[in-house]
Amino acid sequence: MSLDVSASAVSEAEILAGVAPRVATVRRVVQEAYETYTYWLTLDDPVVRRAYRFEPGQINMFGVVGVGEIPISVSSDPARPMRLAHTIRATGRVTNVIKGLRPGDRVTLRGPFGRPWPVSAARGGNLLVVAGGLGLAPARPAIYRAIRDRGAFRRVIVLVGARGPEHMLFRHELDAWAQWLRFRGIETHLTVDIADDTWPYGEGVVTTLFPRASIDPRVTTVFTCGPEIMMRFAVRDLLGLGVPARRIWLSIERNMHCGVKLCGHCQLGPYFVCADGPIFRYDEIGELMGVAEL
């Protein structure tokens, strides 16, 4: 009996590639912020390692054997897929075990999954990244790609907010961007809700950076990622500035068990966040985001 599966949008090969867990080794662990670490990984199988590619914004299912598997965005540079990084905050069952990982430890990865940031959609215009807290991790690969392809955009603007300096991810890198990359046309502005004496940047929520970024709504494409409440505020202000909903992209989180549209956990209305997202266009999900407990 041959099966009719014409309704599927994703190719068979793509899906099957993500079904089997692959073993990876932790190479380096770097503390980024409070309870948050970046794990640099290499896939053990050399064939898999060389073939592995990901797009900015995509996730892997990150597995700790015997404990569980969770969705985590890739936080490293998509131009160097053999050096793979995940930046993870310890919040619960699985992530607390991840916190204990040391170089040489083995984990599993399945992926990459999901719809990426459409970096090329911003070409010819301005790319504005608005990230809050841990939301910078999924956004970073998009920023790397924009930096590498700087000539394709008029302006590249990176706005990052965090609760406090100790919650700001990739601090050294951000300092370097703020100080040096502006000469290469990357405008970086940072802010924290509550600053201390050592903090040289702005104070206030991330939307307070909008005036400084002098956003031109006619040519700007926005990628925003962070806590849902932060994204709501950011979107409200951006729409207020005249940025059309179809040029605002955001990253959505839902519980995930499979990554390939068959466990049902990640549903958001008609969407499967694992396959139709996690990156959505605001005009696709704005209404759904307004429905409580969907």
Binding site: G66, V67, R93, N96, V97, G100
Partner: peptide
Amino acid sequence: IAWLLQGSVPR
């Protein structure tokens, strides 16, 4: 108990 030994609190 096995989970606790792995450093994780089960739910």
